[in-house]
Each structure stands twice: as C-alpha cells, then as structure tokens.
Simulated assay, not measured.
Amino acid sequence: MATHAPESVAPEGVAPEDVRRVACVGAGVIGGGWVAHFLARGYDVTAWDPAPDAELRLRRLVDAAWPALTQLGLADGASRDRLTVTATLEEAVADAEFVQESAPEKLDLKRDLLARLDAATPPGVVIASSTSGYPMTDMQTDAGGAGRLVVGHPFNPPYLIPLVEVVGGVRTTAEAVAWAGRFYEVAGKSVITMDREVPGFIANRLQEALWREALHMVANGEATVKEIDDSITEGPGLRWAFMGPMLTFALAGGEGGMAHMLDHFGPSLKSPWTRLEAPELDKTLYDAVVSGCDEAAAGRTIADLVAERDQGVIDVLRATGRLPGGRKEGGK
C-alpha cells in the first residue's frame, strides 16, 4: 500500500446542500442509473461516455427508469430535459459541483480516467468512483489532487436501491469523505461511511459469499437456479428487507439473544456446509446457470424483468417506510 499522507485540502466547492449540477462520467448500466437518480432528485446533469451510441442508450435507460422514479416521487423541478450529453469529458465536468465516475472495472482505465477528471474538474469539487471492487488507494495513484477522490459505491439499479458505501483512499482527505457522505444523503441515498478500506467493501463481500455458494450448488446438482432464487425470496430475503443477518440470527436465540444463539449454534459453524472458494466456471456450470436463468425467466424479457424488479423494490420500500426523500427535503 502507498505511504502517502492524506492531503490537507478540504473541498472548496459548494456545500452538499447547495449542489445543483452533477456530472456523470460513464453511462452504462450503473452510470446511467446514477443519471436517472440525479435527474429525479432535481439536479442538472451533464454526462459523457466514449461509446458512439452512448446518448441514445443513456436516454433510453432514463426513459425506462422514469415511471418507477415517478412512483417514488420526483423532486421539485425534476425533468429528463435537464440532461445534457457532452462530446468530451472536459465539457461534462467544466461546471460540475460533484462528479460521479462509473467506468468499466479495469484498474489502469480507472487510474487514467480519475487523473483526467482531476485535471479537468474545477478545484475543490469532490470526484467519486462507482467502483465495486477496487480500493481508492489503488486508483488515485496518478491524480495530482487525489485528496478529493472518494469511492461512492452504489447498488444496481442506483435509481432505486438506496445504499451507497463511501470510503476514501490513503491520500483522500477526511473532509472529502464527509462531504461526499453528506451529499449522497441530501441526494436521497442511505449512506454507510466506512472508516477504512475493506476488500470488496461490505455489502459486496456478503453478496459474493452467497453467490459462490449458489454456484457450487448448481455445479454439484444440489439445487436448480429457480430453487436457489426461491430459497431467498421466499425465505431469508423477506427478513433481510428490514432486518439484517446479524439481528435476524440474534432473534434465533430467543430471549437469550445472540449470546444464546452463539452458545447453542456456535459448534455448527465448523460443519462442512460452506464451499466459499469460487468454483471453476467451466462450460458445464456456465451453461447450467445460463439455461437455468432462461427457465426461471419463463418467457419474460430482460425489459419485463427490469420492470418487475423495479416495482418489487418500490413495493418493499413503501411497505417498510423507506421511500427515498427528495433533494428539496434535504435527505432520506
């Protein structure tokens, strides 16, 4: 790990509550989801992506997300007309008061792009990366103004799933991390501000453990794709929508809580159930997972499934009283 000390410069831009213009660099599934979210929260958004058909795909994604966002409740002044797609990265960030980078997960690309963004973005403006795996320490190596670079890790789709994990690298200032965390809250997100870099962050670590187990069960013929998905949606997933795994297990201990749970079930932790090492993704497993998903889709298109997922998330958020708040109300 690099040994740089965090830089001492605090963000010089506007306060999180006063941001009006956001730049989104990278307009794929995640970047486009961020664009839709920020537009729905009433921001002006400039976007850039190097793909020749980026604007067409981006506007199509925003249009597809808009009905769900309308159900959630649009902020005052929210409009798809407030999106501008620029020809260059420099144009996109020229007047930005916050930048969200969502480029593909390639370390060299991230390093180069963050350095370019740092050079082109007005001084003091915080730049966040949507990376799902790389620590900011590894990505900020080529940026002169690395103190303002943070991770703002969302979950798909960013316009619906509230969580954002915020963390800096060794050269990131504490002020930049705090500013980013507050900005996301104002923008209607639920924020975990991490005090240290963790490989895979928090939620991805938990997701990946479940994903590995699922692949092993498919590979060994122990469960079908549909059985695995049903086991979550009809089982623990119903609890996890409002209570996490730790408190859920504490309740399994009855009146004795987690202490009784650990005393009673602790020995089973050594049972050879888990296969946390990733299985070999050979053609047999690949085909089984792909065909299993096709069967589980039962004729529904990707667009159908996206609409079903979005409506399901909205219903869960509504049922649990966690519909995101608008920017004008100042947060969640």
Rank of each mutant, 00 (worst) to 15 (best):
G169I: 02
V166P: 00
M139N: 03
A146G: 09
K106H: 15
V151M: 03
A96E: 09
P135N: 00
D108F: 06
G152Y: 04
Q140M: 10
G145F: 09
L160V: 08
P123A: 14
S129I: 04
V170E: 03
R148K: 10
L114D: 11
A128P: 07
R148T: 09
L149I: 03
Q100D: 08
G144K: 11
P162M: 10
A120Y: 12
A120G: 11
S102T: 15
S102E: 12
V164L: 08
P104H: 07
A120E: 12
S130T: 04
L107G: 07
D108C: 00
T141A: 14
G152V: 01
D118F: 12
M139E: 05
E165V: 11
D95W: 14
R116W: 04
M136I: 12
T141I: 13
A119Y: 08
V99C: 07
S130K: 05
P122G: 10
D108P: 03
L113P: 01
M136H: 02
P158K: 01
S102H: 15
T131I: 03
K106W: 14
V151I: 09
G145A: 09
S129Y: 00
A174H: 13
A119T: 06
P122L: 13
D112P: 07
V99A: 02
P154S: 06
E165A: 02
R148Q: 12
R111P: 10
E105M: 11
L107A: 14
I161L: 15
D138T: 15
A103Q: 15
H153F: 02
V150K: 02
A103S: 15
A174C: 07
I161H: 14
V170R: 12
E175P: 00
G133N: 04
L113S: 04
A143R: 04
D108S: 12
S102D: 14
F98P: 04
G168R: 09
V166C: 04
Q140P: 00
L149T: 00
V125W: 06
L114I: 08
I127V: 15
D138W: 14
P157T: 05
A96H: 02
A115G: 11
G145V: 08
G144E: 15
R148S: 08
G152H: 02
R111G: 10
A96S: 08
Y159A: 11
P135F: 00
E105Q: 14
A143N: 08
T137P: 01
L117K: 10
L160R: 10
L117R: 10
D112F: 05
P104V: 03
D112N: 11
T172N: 01
S132E: 08
V164F: 06
G144T: 14
D95P: 13
R171K: 09
D142I: 00
A115T: 14
V150F: 01
A115R: 13
T173M: 06
R111E: 10
R116V: 11
A146F: 10
T121A: 06
G133F: 04
A120S: 14
L114G: 06
A176C: 05
D138C: 07
F155P: 04
K106C: 12
D138M: 12
I161C: 14
T173S: 15
R116P: 01
T121R: 05
P135M: 02
G147H: 13
V167Y: 03
S130N: 06
P104A: 08
S132Y: 06
I161Y: 13
G169H: 05
L114T: 13
V150D: 05
A120I: 13
